[in-house]
């Protein structure tokens, strides 16, 4: 077993063991899906946009992946608090291996949680237009997971206090979610909002999933652009995460 492998396995094991957390973190997405999905459904329908549940299901999956990936990175603050981080930092292994193991582990956990929510949306009545598109959608989910797990690693390596966690949630994770177009179509937005949605990586993830899962016409940018942007941002964030992680002083 390699260093990357064992640290990856650690994240996954911890996730699979914390059943309570797994169920608890279903709460947020379920609320959006249940309350907004069914609550705003009639309005959305009347505006001639079809089923809102159908529209927002990819958004809620994207949201879950975003939240879980960010949380796993922030878990580094706990590792710092409880000392396990130090145990890995004094080991005779490159920092990059530690960073990659943690990040890929966090991303995997986010994909697993996303899969769980995908199942929930199916139960709620979400119907992907094509079964063949589902595996491709999972590639997108994995990309989103890596992008945000790497971002979280960069942030987790930089902030040291637990209080910083609240900051990140309120000023980064929530805006990333609300600006991603997970809840509304990207057409006809005021220019400020339109500009902001375009710098949010999650926008492209949700857009790509929408195109795949509910029909080609519903993608705003097109799958090619979506994947290209996510790949580019992913490379930048992984590099940033590796750089920040290499700077940690124990």
């Amino acid at each position: 077993m390699t260093v990357v492998g064992i640290l990856w396995l650690r994240e996954v094991k911890k996730y699979l063991r914390s059943r309570v957390q797994m169920v608890a973190s279903l709460g947020g997405p379920l609320m959006y899906l249940g309350v907004l999905g069914f609550g705003l459904g009639p309005v959305f329908q009347r505006a001639g946009q079809g089923s809102y549940l159908q529209f927002m299901a990819p958004g809620v999956i994207g949201m879950t992946v975003l939240f879980t990936a960010m949380f796993s990175g922030i878990a580094m603050l706990w590792d710092r608090q409880f000392g396990f981080l130090k145990e890995t930092l004094v080991a005779p292994v490159p920092r990059l291996a530690i960073m990659l193991g943690r990040t890929l582990g966090g991303a995997t956990v986010a994909v697993l949680q996303g899969t769980l929510i995908f199942g929930v949306t199916l139960i709620a009545g979400f119907r992907p237009v094509s079964v063949l598109a589902v595996p491709v959608a999972f590639l997108l989910i994995a990309l989103i997971a890596v992008v945000f797990a790497a971002l979280a690693t960069a942030i987790g390596s930089t902030i040291k206090e637990m209080q910083g966690f609240q900051m990140v949630m309120n000023f980064l994770v929530m805006p990333l979610f609300f600006l991603s177009g997970a809840l509304y179509p990207l057409v006809g937005l005021p220019w400020v909002l339109a500009a902001l949605t375009r710098v949010d990586p999650l926008t492209y993830g949700v857009d790509g999933m929408r195109g795949l899962l509910i029909g080609r016409g519903s993608a705003h940018f097109g799958l090619g652009v979506d994947v290209a942007v996510l790949l580019g941002v992913g490379v930048v964030f992984v590099a940033a995460g590796a750089w920040r992680f290499s700077k940690i002083e124990a």
């Binding site: 064992i6 094991k13 911890k14 000392g83 396990f84 130090k86 145990e87 080991a91 005779p92």
Partner: peptide, 20 residues
């Protein structure tokens, strides 16, 4: 200060160290 992962078993803590 302690530096164990309390969410893992004793064996797993040892095993991770061995790989590292």
């Amino acid at each position: 200060d302690p530096s164990l992962d309390s969410e893992l078993t004793a064996w797993e803590n040892m095993d991770i160290h061995g790989v590292l």
